[in-house]
Write a protein that binds this DNA or RNA. Sequence first.
DNA 1: CTATTAATTTTACATCGTATATTTACATTG
DNA 2: CAATGTAAATATACGATGTAAAATTAATAG
Lengths: 197, 197
Amino acid sequence: MARPVKKEQIPNLQEAIKETAWRLIAEFGAPALSLRAIARALSITAPAIYNYFPDRDALVTALTIDAFTSFGDVQLKARDSFPPEQLLERFRAIGLAYRDWALSYPQRYQLIFGTPIPGYEQQQQEILPSATRSISALVSVIEDFRLAGRLKYKHFPVIPPEYEAQLSAMNTCTSKYHSLSHGVALIVWSRVHGLVS
Amino acid sequence: MARPVKKEQIPNLQEAIKETAWRLIAEFGAPALSLRAIARALSITAPAIYNYFPDRDALVTALTIDAFTSFGDVQLKARDSFPPEQLLERFRAIGLAYRDWALSYPQRYQLIFGTPIPGYEQQQQEILPSATRSISALVSVIEDFRLAGRLKYKHFPVIPPEYEAQLSAMNTCTSKYHSLSHGVALIVWSRVHGLVS
DNA sequence: CTATTAATTTTACATCGTATATTTACATTG
DNA sequence: CAATGTAAATATACGATGTAAAATTAATAG
């Protein structure tokens, strides 16, 4: 074989594309993102991107996964900033970390939770693992509450149907937690999300 | 003035455009809807549509309003199929009517609750009245339950933040109902919606 | 040095929304 | 009844998008 990985006037183009995409999202908003705009900003032609991502949706999916990964890192780190016994502190840290993260990375927040990109629809299958991991911090703590008998509930929580598909997917993906914990986590999450917004 | 409303090879073009749009939505799905596709189907040129709708979003908004109106008609009719005292029957009729409507008009259902049209984002202001009316049937019945003291609750319902904006908008729009009724209605709605899906 | 081959650009096509200018055909008015 | 004003439709055009196919470039392996 010849010419495997050199030339590249931009050292790591794959990464540069994503970084530029993030910058454009930050500047003009997620709905305005386009391959051509990215190429323009990089002084590159649009089809060149196809060497790194099979199509536009794949790029957006990659961005989304990165965002979820970053989010998950922060969430897990927040949880582990307190020892396993201090459930309340862990719980609280996770909530605050959510807020900090949203403020620190508004683009990532926007891509995951904000106005969607026009033609794009989520490729659940690809995104799910990183998405699941990102809320596993919260779920695990609530699971600990439940195991400690400190989860008081009278009714099984009401889950809006929009989330139900994801919820059951998460359940099959990480069956280590009780579904009740998932449900409560979702509600907690929606509360925090509301506050942060 | 001259020539106000004649010629028109297609008698009522405004209406014909909308009907064709619905047909295309039914056939190819809402995300695939486009002005040019509508024009093609009508053997018309695309810019002609601009005589009836200022832009594409206006057309989609008009369709959405029509869908909500149809939905509201059915909901109110269902409610009024029982006398005001038979709250439970009314409640039940509304739920069943939801299902019937979704099955009878899958395109309308899809436009309101399904995958959105790519570039389009809802013009809340225009849509709100018809949307509000469409769930007023449910809200009014729940309000009656509340007034009759038949609404048992321990916690104020948890409302996912996505709906909160609409909820408060509805409140200012039709302030005749208690906000608790709105909240409960939203939860009931989400349950029924889940079932129907 | 040359052949191979990965990385890019060039060119091209199909789609979209929509702005502008032009034609068409009717209804009213002189 | 013919002239005119005007609404409705078309024709044309522009810029944007995603992406397929071919042509070009440059680095490495033999």
